[in-house]
Amino acid sequence: KTVHVNGVQYDFDNPEQAERFAKEMAKKAGLQIQFHGDQIKIE
């Protein structure tokens, strides 16, 4: 899974790890999470 945070890309082999990371980042920055198939976007 790939997580995009403000244009920066983070790759994870483990989907659960990717989602946990995305939730942490979104919570910290007060941003929205969008799921697009294999990609998670935080903007």
Rank of each mutant, 00 (worst) to 15 (best):
V5L: 09
P15C: 15
V3A: 04
L31N: 12
E43S: 10
Y10W: 04
H36Q: 13
P15D: 12
G30P: 01
A22N: 03
I33H: 05
K41D: 11
D11W: 14
R20A: 13
V5W: 12
D11N: 09
Y10N: 04
A29W: 06
G30F: 02
K28R: 07
A29N: 12
D13R: 00
Q17C: 15
Q32C: 15
K23M: 07
E24V: 00
P15I: 13
Q39L: 12
L31S: 10
E24G: 00
N6S: 04
R20D: 13
Y10R: 04
K1C: 15
G7A: 02
A22F: 12
G37W: 00
T2S: 11
I40W: 00
H36S: 06
L31T: 09
D13Y: 01
T2M: 06
G30Y: 01
F12I: 04
Y10E: 02
G30A: 07
Q9K: 12
A22S: 01
A22R: 04
K28H: 12
K28I: 14
N6Y: 00
H4R: 09
V8I: 12
I33G: 07
V3W: 00
R20P: 00
D13A: 05
K41L: 14
F21H: 05
K27D: 12
N14E: 10
V5N: 02
V3H: 03
M25G: 01
I42Q: 06
D13C: 15
V5S: 02
H4V: 15
V8L: 08
I33Y: 00
A18Q: 01
Q32T: 14
Q17A: 14
I40K: 03
A26M: 10
Q17D: 14
E19T: 03
T2L: 05
R20K: 11
P15F: 13
I40G: 07
A22P: 03
K27Y: 01
E43H: 07
D11K: 05
H36N: 13
G7S: 07
I40A: 07
I33T: 04
I42H: 07
F12H: 01
E43N: 09
Q32L: 10
G7L: 03
Q32D: 14
I42E: 08
Q39D: 13
I33P: 11
A29S: 12
V5F: 12
K41P: 09
R20V: 04
G37M: 00
K1W: 14
G30L: 02
A22L: 12
Q34M: 08
T2E: 03
K23F: 03
L31E: 05
H36A: 11
K1Q: 09
T2R: 09
A29F: 13
V8D: 06
I33Q: 04
N14L: 09
N14P: 00
A18Y: 06
A26C: 14
L31I: 08
K27Q: 11
F12E: 05
M25R: 00
K1I: 14
K27L: 08
A29D: 11
H36E: 15
E24W: 00
V5K: 04
M25E: 10
K27R: 09
Q34C: 15
D11C: 15
A22E: 09
A18W: 05
H36W: 14
A26Q: 09
K27P: 04
E16Y: 06
E16D: 10
I33V: 10
E43G: 10
E24P: 00
L31Q: 06
N14I: 05
N6C: 15
H4I: 15
L31V: 13
G30K: 03
G30S: 05
A26W: 00
E43C: 15
V5A: 03
K23A: 11
E19A: 05
Q17W: 08
I42S: 08
F21D: 08
Q9H: 09
K27N: 11
H36Y: 13
K23Y: 04
G7T: 03
D38C: 13
G7V: 03
T2G: 02
Q9L: 08
Q32I: 14
V3P: 02
G7P: 01
E43W: 06
E24K: 00
A22Y: 10
A22M: 08
F12Q: 02
F35W: 13
E19C: 15
I33K: 01
R20M: 11
Q32E: 14
Q32M: 05
R20N: 13
F12C: 12
D11V: 10
F21L: 07
I40C: 15
M25F: 02
P15A: 13
N6L: 12
F12S: 02
F12L: 10
D13G: 02
R20Y: 04
I42D: 09
K1Y: 14
G7K: 05
I40R: 01
N6W: 02
K23L: 10
G30D: 10
H4F: 15
Q39P: 07
I33N: 09
E43L: 11
Q39H: 11
F21N: 06
G30V: 01
Y10I: 11
G30Q: 05
M25C: 15
E19M: 14
G37N: 10
I40Y: 00
R20I: 11
F12W: 02
A18S: 03
G37C: 15
F35K: 11
T2H: 13
F21W: 08
I40H: 05
Q9S: 09
V5Y: 12
M25W: 01
K41W: 15
G7W: 00
H4Q: 09
K28F: 03
G7R: 01
E16S: 07
E19Q: 07
V3G: 03
L31P: 04
Q39A: 10
E43V: 13
A26L: 09
T2I: 10
Q9T: 10
K23C: 15
G7F: 01
Y10A: 02
H36I: 14
Q9A: 11
K41G: 10
E16V: 07
I33D: 11
I42P: 09
N6M: 10
E24D: 09
D13W: 01
Q34P: 00
K28M: 12
N6H: 08
V8N: 05
A18R: 02
I33M: 02
Q34F: 08
T2W: 00
M25Q: 10
N14W: 06
Q17R: 01
F35Y: 13
I40P: 06
E19K: 05
E16T: 08
N14K: 03
Q17N: 07
L31A: 11
